[in-house]
């Protein structure tokens, strides 16, 4: 198999399978989670219905008091790489073209030099977060195989994409194929690992917030 065939496979059959598994997994898990329901809470609500669910969605995005000072790497690094990822994935022109071809939706992109810079920042932030996870005994103790695995799954597409654009290590064609393959790997595993938080994060926050509100926890 030569580079071109690898790329064509990645853009063709590989993508087909990856998107297929991704959709299957996402729908499966979303339906399963949301159809679970909870038992009816028979206790009386402590507080008149406020918007605790919606507040929690927002509030949990802001560091709790004192926490930013206590673990700045988790917050600043986490924010940086999440926002960086979003910019790289959704505002790089070729990616928009892909989404458009799959869904018909399109929006303006950012200049590629800017996205390139963001990619470097994202890579740096991810490395810092990883090093922090290794260095801090508590974090290391809490980390399971899945944590290391999902970090790698997320890191590879950013790294290979950036390397492809910069023409590092391998010819562009090969690097592009590897980049697409790494994204496909991410797509395949996303629904079945903790990466699924991309879909559930706000739903679960709302749920927790609502339950807390019901119990009378201040918003």
């Amino acid at each position: 198999m030569n580079e071109m065939q690898l790329l064509t496979w990645a853009r063709g059959t590989g993508l087909d399978f990856a998107v297929g598994i991704f959709l299957l997994g996402v729908l499966w898990r979303l339906i399963e989670i949301y159809s679970l329901g909870r038992k009816k809470d028979l206790s009386a609500a402590r507080q008149a219905a406020g918007a605790s669910g919606w507040h929690t969605i927002f509030r949990r995005s802001v560091p709790a008091e004192g926490m930013l000072k206590k673990s700045p790497v988790s917050y600043i690094g986490g924010y940086t790489f999440h926002i960086g990822l979003a910019i790289c994935v959704f505002l790089f022109a070729p990616h928009i073209k892909l989404i458009q071809s799959l869904t018909g939706l399109s929006w303006p992109g950012l200049p590629s030099q800017f996205v390139d810079l963001i990619a470097v920042v994202t890579i740096a932030a991810m490395v810092v977060v990883l090093v922090d996870r290794i260095n801090k005994p508590v974090k290391r103790y809490l980390s399971t195989f899945q944590d290391w695995f999902t970090w790698t799954l997320t890191f590879l597409p950013v790294l290979t994409g950036w390397m492809a654009v910069q023409h590092l290590l391998l010819p562009y064609t090969t690097m592009l194929a590897i980049h697409i393959l790494s994204v496909e790997l991410l797509l395949v595993f996303l629904p079945f690992t903790k990466l699924f938080h991309a879909f559930t994060v706000f739903g679960s926050r709302w749920y927790i917030g609502t339950v807390n509100g019901h119990k009378g926890v201040a918003v």
Binding site: V19, G20, L98
Partner: peptide, 13 residues
């Protein structure tokens, strides 16, 4: 087809 687009229509999706 732009290089970033799927090479073939996604049949499995």
């Amino acid at each position: 087809k732009a290089l970033s687009m799927p090479a073939n229509p996604l049949k499995l999706a």
